[in-house]
Design a protein around this nucleic acid. Structure first.
Length: 494
RNA sequence: CGGGGUGUGGCGCAGUCCGGUAGCGCACCUGGUUUGGGACCAGGGGGUCGAAGGUUCGAAUCCUUUCGCCCCGACCA
Protein backbone atom coordinates (compact mmCIF):
# COMPACT_ATOMS: atom_id res chain seq x y z
CA UNK A 1 0.00 0.00 0.00
CA UNK A 2 1.09 3.59 -0.22
CA UNK A 3 4.10 3.28 2.04
CA UNK A 4 5.33 6.73 1.19
CA UNK A 5 2.18 8.14 2.78
CA UNK A 6 2.97 6.80 6.19
CA UNK A 7 6.42 8.29 6.18
CA UNK A 8 5.22 11.72 5.24
CA UNK A 9 4.22 12.52 8.81
CA UNK A 10 3.39 16.18 9.03
CA UNK A 11 2.50 16.40 5.37
CA UNK A 12 -0.15 13.74 5.66
CA UNK A 13 -2.87 16.22 6.56
CA UNK A 14 -1.97 18.30 3.52
CA UNK A 15 -1.88 15.24 1.31
CA UNK A 16 -5.32 14.20 2.52
CA UNK A 17 -6.80 17.63 1.96
CA UNK A 18 -5.34 17.92 -1.54
CA UNK A 19 -6.56 14.47 -2.48
CA UNK A 20 -10.13 15.15 -1.38
CA UNK A 21 -10.12 18.35 -3.42
CA UNK A 22 -8.32 17.00 -6.49
CA UNK A 23 -10.36 13.83 -6.77
CA UNK A 24 -13.56 15.82 -6.71
CA UNK A 25 -15.07 14.41 -3.51
CA UNK A 26 -15.73 17.66 -1.69
CA UNK A 27 -14.62 21.21 -1.04
CA UNK A 28 -15.15 23.85 1.61
CA UNK A 29 -18.33 25.88 1.26
CA UNK A 30 -18.84 29.61 1.61
CA UNK A 31 -20.07 28.98 5.16
CA UNK A 32 -17.24 28.63 7.64
CA UNK A 33 -16.44 25.02 8.47
CA UNK A 34 -19.11 23.63 6.15
CA UNK A 35 -18.51 21.40 3.18
CA UNK A 36 -19.93 20.89 -0.28
CA UNK A 37 -20.03 17.20 -1.07
CA UNK A 38 -19.53 17.13 -4.81
CA UNK A 39 -21.31 14.67 -7.11
CA UNK A 40 -18.53 12.08 -7.06
CA UNK A 41 -18.28 12.17 -3.27
CA UNK A 42 -22.01 12.04 -2.92
CA UNK A 43 -22.27 9.02 -5.21
CA UNK A 44 -19.95 7.13 -2.89
CA UNK A 45 -21.88 8.30 0.18
CA UNK A 46 -25.12 7.17 -1.48
CA UNK A 47 -23.55 3.75 -1.96
CA UNK A 48 -22.81 3.60 1.76
CA UNK A 49 -26.32 4.73 2.63
CA UNK A 50 -27.88 2.11 0.42
CA UNK A 51 -26.05 -0.79 2.03
CA UNK A 52 -26.59 0.46 5.57
CA UNK A 53 -30.22 1.33 5.07
CA UNK A 54 -30.91 -2.17 3.81
CA UNK A 55 -29.27 -3.64 6.90
CA UNK A 56 -31.25 -1.35 9.20
CA UNK A 57 -34.48 -2.51 7.60
CA UNK A 58 -33.41 -6.15 7.76
CA UNK A 59 -32.89 -5.67 11.48
CA UNK A 60 -36.40 -4.33 11.96
CA UNK A 61 -35.88 -0.57 11.82
CA UNK A 62 -37.93 2.03 9.97
CA UNK A 63 -36.97 5.52 8.79
CA UNK A 64 -38.56 8.79 9.86
CA UNK A 65 -37.69 12.49 9.72
CA UNK A 66 -37.61 14.92 12.60
CA UNK A 67 -37.13 18.73 12.59
CA UNK A 68 -33.87 20.54 12.17
CA UNK A 69 -34.57 22.86 15.09
CA UNK A 70 -34.79 21.98 18.76
CA UNK A 71 -36.42 24.29 21.31
CA UNK A 72 -33.80 25.20 23.88
CA UNK A 73 -35.98 23.87 26.70
CA UNK A 74 -36.04 20.36 25.18
CA UNK A 75 -32.38 20.36 24.80
CA UNK A 76 -31.69 21.17 28.41
CA UNK A 77 -33.75 18.38 29.96
CA UNK A 78 -30.95 15.84 30.15
CA UNK A 79 -28.18 17.37 32.24
CA UNK A 80 -25.16 15.46 30.92
CA UNK A 81 -26.42 15.88 27.38
CA UNK A 82 -26.55 19.70 27.59
CA UNK A 83 -23.16 19.84 29.19
CA UNK A 84 -21.69 17.75 26.41
CA UNK A 85 -23.08 19.78 23.55
CA UNK A 86 -23.56 23.30 24.93
CA UNK A 87 -20.20 24.58 23.70
CA UNK A 88 -20.79 23.76 20.06
CA UNK A 89 -24.37 24.67 19.29
CA UNK A 90 -25.59 27.03 16.59
CA UNK A 91 -28.61 28.92 17.87
CA UNK A 92 -31.48 30.54 15.97
CA UNK A 93 -32.60 33.70 17.73
CA UNK A 94 -34.63 35.65 15.14
CA UNK A 95 -37.17 34.91 12.43
CA UNK A 96 -37.04 37.96 10.19
CA UNK A 97 -34.75 40.34 8.30
CA UNK A 98 -35.46 43.90 7.21
CA UNK A 99 -33.90 46.83 5.39
CA UNK A 100 -32.13 49.16 7.74
CA UNK A 101 -33.84 52.56 7.53
CA UNK A 102 -30.54 54.47 7.50
CA UNK A 103 -28.05 52.35 5.58
CA UNK A 104 -30.48 50.36 3.42
CA UNK A 105 -28.58 47.20 4.33
CA UNK A 106 -30.32 43.96 5.17
CA UNK A 107 -30.21 43.49 8.93
CA UNK A 108 -31.71 41.15 11.49
CA UNK A 109 -34.95 42.73 12.64
CA UNK A 110 -34.48 43.33 16.37
CA UNK A 111 -38.27 43.24 16.76
CA UNK A 112 -38.32 39.66 15.53
CA UNK A 113 -36.55 38.00 18.42
CA UNK A 114 -37.83 34.51 19.20
CA UNK A 115 -39.37 34.03 22.63
CA UNK A 116 -37.53 30.75 22.91
CA UNK A 117 -34.28 30.25 21.02
CA UNK A 118 -33.99 27.25 18.74
CA UNK A 119 -30.92 25.04 18.55
CA UNK A 120 -29.86 23.61 15.23
CA UNK A 121 -29.74 19.90 16.05
CA UNK A 122 -26.30 18.58 16.96
CA UNK A 123 -28.05 15.19 17.43
CA UNK A 124 -31.72 14.34 17.81
CA UNK A 125 -32.16 12.41 21.05
CA UNK A 126 -34.18 15.18 22.65
CA UNK A 127 -36.57 15.70 19.75
CA UNK A 128 -37.14 12.03 19.30
CA UNK A 129 -37.63 11.25 22.96
CA UNK A 130 -40.05 14.13 23.22
CA UNK A 131 -42.10 12.53 20.44
CA UNK A 132 -41.69 9.04 21.90
CA UNK A 133 -43.50 10.17 25.04
CA UNK A 134 -46.66 10.43 22.96
CA UNK A 135 -46.05 7.25 20.99
CA UNK A 136 -45.39 4.84 23.83
CA UNK A 137 -48.08 3.79 26.34
CA UNK A 138 -47.88 0.01 26.49
CA UNK A 139 -45.32 -2.75 26.22
CA UNK A 140 -47.16 -3.48 22.97
CA UNK A 141 -45.69 -0.24 21.54
CA UNK A 142 -42.19 -1.54 22.19
CA UNK A 143 -39.65 -1.93 20.89
CA UNK A 144 -39.72 1.27 18.87
CA UNK A 145 -36.94 1.05 16.28
CA UNK A 146 -36.48 4.30 14.35
CA UNK A 147 -33.69 5.65 12.20
CA UNK A 148 -33.28 8.99 10.51
CA UNK A 149 -30.93 10.12 7.74
CA UNK A 150 -30.19 13.76 8.39
CA UNK A 151 -27.71 16.55 8.61
CA UNK A 152 -26.63 17.92 11.97
CA UNK A 153 -24.53 20.86 13.05
CA UNK A 154 -21.80 21.15 15.64
CA UNK A 155 -19.92 24.43 15.72
CA UNK A 156 -16.44 22.95 15.64
CA UNK A 157 -13.42 25.10 16.32
CA UNK A 158 -11.29 23.54 13.67
CA UNK A 159 -12.55 21.53 10.73
CA UNK A 160 -11.21 18.98 8.28
CA UNK A 161 -13.03 17.82 5.15
CA UNK A 162 -15.24 14.82 6.02
CA UNK A 163 -13.45 14.11 9.30
CA UNK A 164 -14.79 17.08 11.19
CA UNK A 165 -17.03 19.69 9.59
CA UNK A 166 -19.50 22.03 11.21
CA UNK A 167 -22.34 20.43 9.34
CA UNK A 168 -22.29 16.74 8.56
CA UNK A 169 -24.59 14.10 7.16
CA UNK A 170 -25.28 10.93 9.10
CA UNK A 171 -27.84 8.46 10.21
CA UNK A 172 -29.00 8.33 13.77
CA UNK A 173 -30.96 5.39 15.10
CA UNK A 174 -33.01 5.98 18.25
CA UNK A 175 -34.70 3.00 19.82
CA UNK A 176 -36.86 2.39 22.88
CA UNK A 177 -37.20 -0.94 24.68
CA UNK A 178 -39.11 -2.56 27.51
CA UNK A 179 -36.09 -4.09 29.20
CA UNK A 180 -32.50 -3.21 29.91
CA UNK A 181 -31.25 -6.46 28.42
CA UNK A 182 -33.07 -5.81 25.17
CA UNK A 183 -31.67 -2.27 24.88
CA UNK A 184 -28.13 -3.44 25.55
CA UNK A 185 -28.60 -6.16 22.95
CA UNK A 186 -29.80 -3.57 20.44
CA UNK A 187 -26.80 -1.30 21.05
CA UNK A 188 -24.44 -4.23 20.58
CA UNK A 189 -26.30 -5.54 17.57
CA UNK A 190 -26.02 -2.21 15.77
CA UNK A 191 -22.32 -2.06 16.61
CA UNK A 192 -22.03 -5.44 14.86
CA UNK A 193 -23.96 -4.11 11.87
CA UNK A 194 -21.50 -1.23 11.65
CA UNK A 195 -18.44 -3.44 12.01
CA UNK A 196 -19.68 -5.82 9.31
CA UNK A 197 -20.41 -2.91 7.01
CA UNK A 198 -17.01 -1.34 7.54
CA UNK A 199 -15.12 -4.55 6.95
CA UNK A 200 -17.38 -5.98 4.25
CA UNK A 201 -18.17 -2.88 2.23
CA UNK A 202 -15.59 -0.23 3.14
CA UNK A 203 -12.84 -2.87 3.44
CA UNK A 204 -11.71 -1.17 6.64
CA UNK A 205 -10.89 -3.42 9.60
CA UNK A 206 -12.25 -2.09 12.88
CA UNK A 207 -11.83 -2.81 16.57
CA UNK A 208 -15.06 -2.97 18.53
CA UNK A 209 -14.95 -1.71 22.04
CA UNK A 210 -16.45 0.30 24.81
CA UNK A 211 -15.52 3.89 25.66
CA UNK A 212 -14.21 4.98 29.03
CA UNK A 213 -16.34 7.30 31.12
CA UNK A 214 -14.36 10.31 29.89
CA UNK A 215 -14.96 9.51 26.24
CA UNK A 216 -18.56 8.42 26.68
CA UNK A 217 -21.42 10.12 24.79
CA UNK A 218 -23.14 12.88 26.76
CA UNK A 219 -26.23 11.20 28.21
CA UNK A 220 -25.24 7.57 27.66
CA UNK A 221 -24.68 4.84 30.22
CA UNK A 222 -22.35 2.94 27.88
CA UNK A 223 -20.85 4.02 24.58
CA UNK A 224 -19.71 1.34 22.17
CA UNK A 225 -17.35 2.29 19.37
CA UNK A 226 -15.69 0.96 16.25
CA UNK A 227 -12.13 2.24 15.83
CA UNK A 228 -10.00 2.10 12.71
CA UNK A 229 -6.39 2.97 11.95
CA UNK A 230 -5.42 5.42 9.22
CA UNK A 231 -2.24 5.08 7.14
CA UNK A 232 -0.44 7.74 9.17
CA UNK A 233 -0.90 5.72 12.34
CA UNK A 234 -3.67 7.83 13.85
CA UNK A 235 -6.94 6.27 14.97
CA UNK A 236 -10.39 7.31 13.82
CA UNK A 237 -13.69 6.61 15.51
CA UNK A 238 -15.81 5.25 12.68
CA UNK A 239 -19.13 4.96 14.46
CA UNK A 240 -20.81 4.70 17.82
CA UNK A 241 -23.67 2.91 19.48
CA UNK A 242 -24.95 4.03 22.85
CA UNK A 243 -26.85 2.25 25.56
CA UNK A 244 -28.74 5.19 27.07
CA UNK A 245 -30.19 3.36 30.07
CA UNK A 246 -33.30 5.22 31.21
CA UNK A 247 -31.67 8.65 31.06
CA UNK A 248 -33.72 10.08 28.23
CA UNK A 249 -36.87 8.29 29.38
CA UNK A 250 -36.48 10.05 32.73
CA UNK A 251 -35.74 13.41 31.16
CA UNK A 252 -38.74 13.23 28.84
CA UNK A 253 -40.99 11.15 31.08
CA UNK A 254 -41.38 8.26 28.67
CA UNK A 255 -43.10 5.39 30.48
CA UNK A 256 -45.16 2.34 29.57
CA UNK A 257 -47.44 -0.19 31.24
CA UNK A 258 -45.84 -3.63 31.34
CA UNK A 259 -47.61 -6.98 31.15
CA UNK A 260 -48.23 -6.87 34.88
CA UNK A 261 -49.94 -3.50 34.53
CA UNK A 262 -47.09 -1.63 36.25
CA UNK A 263 -45.68 1.63 34.98
CA UNK A 264 -41.99 1.47 33.92
CA UNK A 265 -39.47 3.83 32.34
CA UNK A 266 -38.39 2.67 28.89
CA UNK A 267 -34.78 1.84 27.99
CA UNK A 268 -33.05 3.52 25.08
CA UNK A 269 -30.27 3.30 22.56
CA UNK A 270 -28.91 5.57 19.89
CA UNK A 271 -26.32 4.84 17.23
CA UNK A 272 -24.83 6.67 14.30
CA UNK A 273 -22.33 6.76 11.49
CA UNK A 274 -21.56 9.79 9.40
CA UNK A 275 -19.82 11.20 6.34
CA UNK A 276 -16.68 10.83 8.42
CA UNK A 277 -16.57 7.33 6.93
CA UNK A 278 -15.77 9.03 3.63
CA UNK A 279 -12.64 10.45 5.21
CA UNK A 280 -11.69 7.04 6.55
CA UNK A 281 -12.17 5.49 3.13
CA UNK A 282 -9.74 8.01 1.67
CA UNK A 283 -7.18 7.72 4.47
CA UNK A 284 -7.13 3.93 4.68
CA UNK A 285 -6.89 2.89 1.02
CA UNK A 286 -5.46 5.73 -1.02
CA UNK A 287 -1.94 5.86 -2.41
CA UNK A 288 0.22 8.44 -4.15
CA UNK A 289 -1.78 8.04 -7.37
CA UNK A 290 -5.01 8.98 -5.65
CA UNK A 291 -8.11 7.31 -4.27
CA UNK A 292 -8.63 3.58 -4.18
CA UNK A 293 -12.35 2.86 -3.93
CA UNK A 294 -13.42 -0.68 -2.97
CA UNK A 295 -15.45 -2.32 -5.76
CA UNK A 296 -18.48 -2.68 -3.49
CA UNK A 297 -18.73 1.11 -3.31
CA UNK A 298 -17.17 2.38 -6.51
CA UNK A 299 -19.70 4.39 -8.53
CA UNK A 300 -17.77 3.22 -11.59
CA UNK A 301 -16.32 -0.28 -11.15
CA UNK A 302 -14.88 -0.64 -14.63
CA UNK A 303 -13.84 2.10 -17.01
CA UNK A 304 -13.16 1.34 -20.66
CA UNK A 305 -10.78 3.59 -22.57
CA UNK A 306 -10.69 3.32 -26.36
CA UNK A 307 -7.38 4.56 -27.71
CA UNK A 308 -8.28 6.12 -31.03
CA UNK A 309 -6.06 7.53 -33.73
CA UNK A 310 -7.19 10.60 -35.59
CA UNK A 311 -6.17 9.33 -38.97
CA UNK A 312 -7.89 5.97 -38.58
CA UNK A 313 -11.51 5.05 -38.89
CA UNK A 314 -12.26 4.18 -35.26
CA UNK A 315 -15.75 2.82 -35.65
CA UNK A 316 -14.67 -0.83 -35.27
CA UNK A 317 -12.67 0.04 -32.17
CA UNK A 318 -15.52 1.96 -30.56
CA UNK A 319 -17.94 -0.80 -31.44
CA UNK A 320 -15.74 -3.44 -29.82
CA UNK A 321 -15.42 -1.32 -26.67
CA UNK A 322 -19.16 -0.70 -26.47
CA UNK A 323 -19.84 -4.41 -26.92
CA UNK A 324 -17.54 -5.24 -24.02
CA UNK A 325 -19.22 -2.57 -21.90
CA UNK A 326 -22.63 -4.05 -22.65
CA UNK A 327 -21.43 -7.55 -21.75
CA UNK A 328 -20.03 -6.32 -18.45
CA UNK A 329 -23.20 -4.41 -17.63
CA UNK A 330 -25.16 -7.60 -18.21
CA UNK A 331 -22.89 -9.24 -15.63
CA UNK A 332 -24.12 -6.64 -13.14
CA UNK A 333 -21.16 -4.28 -13.15
CA UNK A 334 -21.20 -0.48 -13.06
CA UNK A 335 -19.39 0.42 -16.27
CA UNK A 336 -18.31 3.63 -17.95
CA UNK A 337 -16.92 4.08 -21.44
CA UNK A 338 -14.61 7.07 -21.56
CA UNK A 339 -14.69 7.98 -25.24
CA UNK A 340 -14.14 11.70 -24.67
CA UNK A 341 -11.98 12.67 -27.66
CA UNK A 342 -10.80 15.95 -26.11
CA UNK A 343 -8.65 14.04 -23.60
CA UNK A 344 -5.69 11.84 -24.35
CA UNK A 345 -5.31 8.28 -23.01
CA UNK A 346 -2.57 9.13 -20.53
CA UNK A 347 -4.69 11.87 -19.08
CA UNK A 348 -7.63 9.49 -18.71
CA UNK A 349 -5.52 6.79 -17.07
CA UNK A 350 -4.27 9.26 -14.50
CA UNK A 351 -7.71 10.73 -13.93
CA UNK A 352 -9.44 7.39 -13.31
CA UNK A 353 -6.64 6.32 -11.02
CA UNK A 354 -7.03 9.56 -9.10
CA UNK A 355 -10.71 8.78 -8.67
CA UNK A 356 -10.01 5.22 -7.61
CA UNK A 357 -11.83 3.24 -10.30
CA UNK A 358 -11.01 -0.42 -9.43
CA UNK A 359 -10.51 -1.80 -12.96
CA UNK A 360 -9.57 -0.17 -16.24
CA UNK A 361 -9.79 -1.76 -19.67
CA UNK A 362 -7.95 -0.13 -22.56
CA UNK A 363 -8.21 -1.03 -26.22
CA UNK A 364 -6.17 0.44 -29.06
CA UNK A 365 -5.47 -0.47 -32.68
CA UNK A 366 -3.05 -3.22 -31.64
CA UNK A 367 -5.66 -4.83 -29.40
CA UNK A 368 -8.30 -4.59 -32.06
CA UNK A 369 -6.08 -6.56 -34.44
CA UNK A 370 -5.20 -9.14 -31.80
CA UNK A 371 -8.65 -9.42 -30.23
CA UNK A 372 -7.37 -8.35 -26.81
CA UNK A 373 -7.73 -5.68 -24.16
CA UNK A 374 -5.38 -4.35 -21.54
CA UNK A 375 -6.70 -4.88 -18.03
CA UNK A 376 -5.34 -2.75 -15.18
CA UNK A 377 -6.23 -3.12 -11.51
CA UNK A 378 -6.11 -0.04 -9.33
CA UNK A 379 -5.21 -1.68 -6.01
CA UNK A 380 -1.95 -3.25 -7.24
CA UNK A 381 -1.36 -0.83 -10.11
CA UNK A 382 -0.63 -3.79 -12.35
CA UNK A 383 -1.73 -4.42 -15.93
CA UNK A 384 -1.84 -7.29 -18.40
CA UNK A 385 -3.32 -8.02 -21.80
CA UNK A 386 -5.96 -10.73 -22.23
CA UNK A 387 -8.10 -12.14 -25.06
CA UNK A 388 -11.52 -10.51 -25.23
CA UNK A 389 -13.21 -13.82 -24.42
CA UNK A 390 -11.48 -13.96 -21.02
CA UNK A 391 -12.13 -10.39 -20.00
CA UNK A 392 -15.68 -10.64 -18.56
CA UNK A 393 -14.93 -13.53 -16.22
CA UNK A 394 -11.66 -11.97 -15.11
CA UNK A 395 -13.27 -8.63 -14.37
CA UNK A 396 -16.14 -10.18 -12.42
CA UNK A 397 -13.67 -12.21 -10.37
CA UNK A 398 -11.49 -9.16 -9.80
CA UNK A 399 -14.29 -7.28 -8.06
CA UNK A 400 -14.22 -9.79 -5.23
CA UNK A 401 -10.46 -10.15 -5.29
CA UNK A 402 -9.78 -6.44 -5.05
CA UNK A 403 -12.37 -6.00 -2.30
CA UNK A 404 -10.69 -8.77 -0.31
CA UNK A 405 -7.18 -7.54 -1.05
CA UNK A 406 -7.97 -4.07 0.24
CA UNK A 407 -9.35 -5.43 3.48
CA UNK A 408 -6.46 -7.86 3.90
CA UNK A 409 -3.73 -5.33 3.42
CA UNK A 410 -5.43 -2.74 5.61
CA UNK A 411 -5.72 -5.39 8.31
CA UNK A 412 -2.12 -6.46 7.87
CA UNK A 413 -0.98 -2.87 8.30
CA UNK A 414 -3.30 -2.26 11.24
CA UNK A 415 -2.29 -5.45 13.06
CA UNK A 416 1.36 -4.54 12.59
CA UNK A 417 0.68 -1.24 14.33
CA UNK A 418 -0.82 -2.71 17.50
CA UNK A 419 1.92 -2.78 20.08
CA UNK A 420 1.85 -3.90 23.70
CA UNK A 421 3.62 -1.54 26.09
CA UNK A 422 4.51 -2.46 29.67
CA UNK A 423 6.07 0.75 30.91
CA UNK A 424 5.81 4.42 30.05
CA UNK A 425 8.98 4.52 27.96
CA UNK A 426 7.73 1.70 25.80
CA UNK A 427 4.38 3.41 25.66
CA UNK A 428 5.83 6.64 24.32
CA UNK A 429 8.14 4.88 21.91
CA UNK A 430 5.24 2.85 20.51
CA UNK A 431 3.15 5.96 20.03
CA UNK A 432 5.91 7.61 18.05
CA UNK A 433 5.76 4.73 15.58
CA UNK A 434 2.06 5.37 15.12
CA UNK A 435 -0.80 2.99 15.69
CA UNK A 436 -2.53 1.47 18.66
CA UNK A 437 -0.79 0.85 21.95
CA UNK A 438 -2.30 -1.90 24.07
CA UNK A 439 -1.43 -1.15 27.66
CA UNK A 440 -2.53 -1.43 31.27
CA UNK A 441 -4.44 1.48 32.79
CA UNK A 442 -5.47 1.90 36.41
CA UNK A 443 -9.05 2.83 35.48
CA UNK A 444 -8.93 6.41 36.81
CA UNK A 445 -9.95 9.48 34.83
CA UNK A 446 -6.95 11.32 36.35
CA UNK A 447 -4.44 8.92 34.85
CA UNK A 448 -6.30 8.97 31.56
CA UNK A 449 -6.10 12.78 31.47
CA UNK A 450 -2.45 12.78 32.47
CA UNK A 451 -1.54 10.36 29.69
CA UNK A 452 -3.41 12.51 27.22
CA UNK A 453 -1.58 15.59 28.43
CA UNK A 454 1.83 13.94 28.21
CA UNK A 455 1.38 12.08 24.94
CA UNK A 456 -1.76 13.39 23.15
CA UNK A 457 -2.96 9.79 23.14
CA UNK A 458 -6.45 8.91 24.32
CA UNK A 459 -8.04 5.64 25.28
CA UNK A 460 -9.79 4.68 22.07
CA UNK A 461 -11.65 1.83 23.70
CA UNK A 462 -11.69 -1.17 25.95
CA UNK A 463 -11.88 -3.87 23.27
CA UNK A 464 -14.76 -6.33 23.35
CA UNK A 465 -13.80 -9.99 23.69
CA UNK A 466 -13.01 -12.23 20.75
CA UNK A 467 -10.85 -9.85 18.73
CA UNK A 468 -7.46 -11.10 19.84
CA UNK A 469 -7.14 -8.21 22.26
CA UNK A 470 -8.50 -9.88 25.37
CA UNK A 471 -5.86 -12.46 26.20
CA UNK A 472 -3.89 -10.57 28.84
CA UNK A 473 -4.92 -10.60 32.48
CA UNK A 474 -4.20 -8.16 35.26
CA UNK A 475 -1.09 -5.99 35.41
CA UNK A 476 0.26 -2.61 36.45
CA UNK A 477 -0.80 0.72 34.97
CA UNK A 478 1.66 1.97 32.41
CA UNK A 479 1.80 5.42 34.03
CA UNK A 480 0.80 5.16 37.70
CA UNK A 481 1.94 1.59 38.30
CA UNK A 482 -1.29 0.95 40.18
CA UNK A 483 -3.14 -2.35 39.66
CA UNK A 484 -4.97 -2.74 36.35
CA UNK A 485 -7.59 -5.34 35.56
CA UNK A 486 -6.84 -5.40 31.85
CA UNK A 487 -5.17 -3.66 28.94
CA UNK A 488 -6.94 -0.95 26.99
CA UNK A 489 -6.30 0.47 23.56
CA UNK A 490 -4.58 3.85 23.26
CA UNK A 491 -3.82 5.93 20.18
CA UNK A 492 -3.51 9.44 18.90
CA UNK A 493 -6.76 10.10 17.14
CA UNK A 494 -8.47 12.36 14.66
C1' C B 1 -9.59 33.59 22.81
C1' G B 2 -3.64 32.64 23.22
C1' G B 3 0.95 31.56 19.75
C1' G B 4 2.67 31.59 14.47
C1' G B 5 1.87 32.63 9.25
C1' U B 6 -0.38 34.67 4.91
C1' G B 7 -3.47 37.91 1.52
C1' U B 8 -1.02 39.58 -6.03
C1' G B 9 -6.06 36.92 -12.75
C1' G B 10 -10.21 30.74 -11.57
C1' C B 11 -6.07 27.79 -8.77
C1' G B 12 -0.79 27.74 -7.11
C1' C B 13 3.05 31.27 -6.66
C1' A B 14 7.33 35.11 -7.79
C1' G B 15 7.98 40.27 -7.25
C1' U B 16 8.06 43.60 -1.32
C1' C B 17 14.30 43.89 1.86
C1' C B 18 16.55 48.21 -2.11
C1' G B 19 9.57 52.41 -4.84
C1' G B 20 9.65 53.32 -11.58
C1' U B 21 3.35 51.69 -13.50
C1' A B 22 2.64 43.59 -12.72
C1' G B 23 4.92 38.49 -14.12
C1' C B 24 5.35 32.86 -14.11
C1' G B 25 3.08 27.82 -13.97
C1' C B 26 -1.61 25.41 -14.29
C1' A B 27 -6.55 26.21 -16.02
C1' C B 28 -9.54 28.80 -19.92
C1' C B 29 -10.61 30.44 -25.43
C1' U B 30 -9.24 30.06 -31.05
C1' G B 31 -6.64 27.41 -34.99
C1' G B 32 -3.66 23.36 -36.34
C1' U B 33 -0.94 18.83 -35.60
C1' U B 34 -1.79 14.77 -32.19
C1' U B 35 -3.78 10.30 -29.13
C1' G B 36 -0.64 2.80 -25.94
C1' G B 37 0.78 6.93 -19.13
C1' G B 38 -1.52 13.77 -17.31
C1' A B 39 0.56 16.20 -25.79
C1' C B 40 2.86 20.06 -28.86
C1' C B 41 3.03 24.68 -31.76
C1' A B 42 1.00 29.47 -32.70
C1' G B 43 -2.30 33.16 -31.19
C1' G B 44 -5.68 35.14 -27.33
C1' G B 45 -8.80 36.69 -22.94
C1' G B 46 -8.59 37.66 -17.84
C1' G B 47 -5.66 41.12 -12.01
C1' U B 48 -8.68 48.67 -8.84
C1' C B 49 -1.89 43.57 -6.01
C1' G B 50 -7.53 42.07 0.83
C1' A B 51 -9.55 47.22 2.34
C1' A B 52 -8.97 52.41 3.97
C1' G B 53 -5.81 56.41 4.79
C1' G B 54 -0.80 58.60 4.55
C1' U B 55 4.43 59.66 2.47
C1' U B 56 6.20 60.48 -2.71
C1' C B 57 6.75 63.20 -9.21
C1' G B 58 5.59 57.94 -8.83
C1' A B 59 3.41 52.63 -4.13
C1' A B 60 2.11 45.46 -4.88
C1' U B 61 6.72 47.47 -2.58
C1' C B 62 7.55 52.45 2.72
C1' C B 63 4.21 54.16 7.19
C1' U B 64 -0.63 53.86 10.01
C1' U B 65 -5.24 51.57 10.70
C1' U B 66 -8.43 47.66 9.54
C1' C B 67 -10.49 43.06 7.60
C1' G B 68 -10.17 38.04 5.84
C1' C B 69 -8.06 33.32 5.63
C1' C B 70 -4.61 29.28 7.09
C1' C B 71 -1.74 26.46 10.80
C1' C B 72 -0.82 25.05 16.27
C1' G B 73 -3.86 24.71 21.41
C1' A B 74 -9.14 23.73 24.07
C1' C B 75 -13.81 20.49 21.42
C1' C B 76 -15.39 16.46 18.31
C1' A B 77 -19.46 11.49 14.55
Amino acid sequence: MGQSLTTRGEDYAQWYNDLVLKSGLAEYAAVRGCMVIKPYGYAIWEGMKEVLDRRFKETGHVNAAFPLLIPKSFFSKEAAHVEGFAKECAVVTHYRLKNDAETGEIIVDPEARLEEELIIRPTSETLMWNAYKGWIQSYRDLPLLINQWANVMRWEMRTRLFLRTSEFYWQEGHTAHATEAEAVEEARKMLEVYAEFMEGTLAIPVIKGIKTETERFAGAVDTYTVEALMQDGRALQMGTSHFLGQNFAKAFDVTFLNKEGERDLVWGTSWGVSTRMMGALVMVHSDDEGLVIPPALAPVQVVLVPIARAKDDNSDLLKAVEEMAATLRKRGLRVKVDDDDTKRPGWKFAEHELRGVPVRLAMGGRDLENGTMELARRDERSKDTFPLSEIPDRVVALMGEIQQNLLDRARRYRDGQIVRADNFDQFQAALELGGFVFAHWDGSAETEALIKEKTKATIRCIPLDGQGLDADGAGACVLSGKPSARRVLFARAY
